[in-house]
């Protein structure tokens, strides 16, 4: 009984509400052509460069290569069900790349976001002078393309060329930034250097949107700068922090440029170091179907992790 009433009211509201704007719409002469004209610039590239490639990859991932006779034969593809997926899930290299990247993310993402948050809070205090300089300086690395950043850092890591290594050696240390244990963290350092400023800027602009009255009220209640920062600012910008975390999770799972560049000078980065590098290596061996399956699995893991994180934090962050 109640259910029916609720549905009815909802239906009425739905019917009643749009009436006025609808008349205005047709009266203003916004026809179908206009809507299509405005939507096409978005939808056409979206379909061509997003939906079609994704669809193609999914389609490929369900195919297997077969061959007709002879030493070289003639290849063709046929439906293979979940064959490629079962191979990916049983691929030891795949899981070790996921594990490596998991370790990377668990350490690098919190460190980077914490530094970004502290920098954003510092920029937001009245204590800091020449703010615009610091803001630009912190954001600057983001303007450097990832590959260039990785090349730059590779010179700083290289024992043959690096002034940093030279100085550390003079201090009696034996650093090996490219060694089997260290190279993952050397890559993490490049990512952190690149992205901290970007994340800081997102948090900082959220901070800028907080009305000053809140701080005045807090001060009247006896809150100091420290309390304002951690009890007022951080909770209010929590949605931004969640957002940057989700971006970082996605970025981590797609990690490619930094390790791929460092691989040029360190043999301790294998061709299957990250999931994306594995997909690339498999594709370059002409096994496009398996590479497609790897890509789809990476996408699914990214989906689960980022949406999982959003769900987990949505209540607390007030999203």
């Amino acid at each position: 009984m109640t259910a029916v009433t609720v549905t009815e009211t909802r239906a009425k509201r739905v019917v009643a509400a749009p009436r006025a704007p609808r008349r205005r719409l047709s009266g203003g002469g916004v026809g179908a052509g206009t809507i299509i004209a405005f939507l096409t610039p978005f939808f056409l590239p979206f379909v061509l460069f997003y939906l079609v490639p994704v669809g193609y990859a999914i389609w490929q991932s369900f195919r297997v290569v077969r061959r007709n006779g002879g030493q070289y034969g003639t290849s063709y593809t046929t439906f293979g069900g979940f064959d490629q997926y079962s191979q990916v899930l049983h691929n030891h290299e795949f899981w070790s790349s996921i594990g490596r990247i998991g370790l990377f993310g668990i350490v690098q993402v919190p460190v980077m976001l914490f530094v970004a948050l502290v920098m954003a809070l510092l920029l937001d205090t009245p204590l800091l002078k020449v703010k615009s300089f610091f803001r630009i300086a912190a954001f600057m690395p983001y303007a450097v393309p990832g590959v260039i950043a990785a090349i730059m850092w590779s010179y700083l890591y290289s024992p043959q060329l690096s002034p940093v290594v030279d100085i550390l050696k003079h201090l009696g240390l034996q650093p090996n930034f490219l060694g089997p244990g260290a190279v993952l963290w050397s890559a993490a350092n490049v990512s952190t250097w690149l992205w901290t400023g970007y994340n800081m800027l997102i948090m900082f602009s959220a901070l800028q949107a907080i009305p000053q009255e809140l701080y005045e009220a807090a001060k009247l209640d006896g809150a100091g700068n420290w309390t304002i920062a951690w009890r007022i600012k951080v909770p209010i910008i929590a949605p931004s922090i969640v957002l940057t975390t989700v971006f970082s999770i996605i970025g981590t799972l797609q990690l490619y440029a930094e390790p791929a560049v460092l691989r040029q000078i360190s043999s301790n980065i294998s061709s299957t170091f990250t999931p994306n590098m594995l997909a690339y290596a498999v594709a370059s061996g002409n096994n496009y179907q398996q590479a497609a399956a790897i890509s789809v699995v990476i996408a699914l893991i990214t989906f689960v992790l980022s949406f999982g994180f959003m769900r987990l934090t949505s209540k607390k962050a007030g999203l």
């Binding site: 043999s267 294998s270 299957t272 498999v282 370059s284 061996g285």
Partner: peptide, 11 residues
């Protein structure tokens, strides 16, 4: 499949 074998050998 020389390229794949080369990568595996290198790793």
């Amino acid at each position: 499949t020389q390229k794949t074998v080369n990568l595996s050998l290198q790793d």
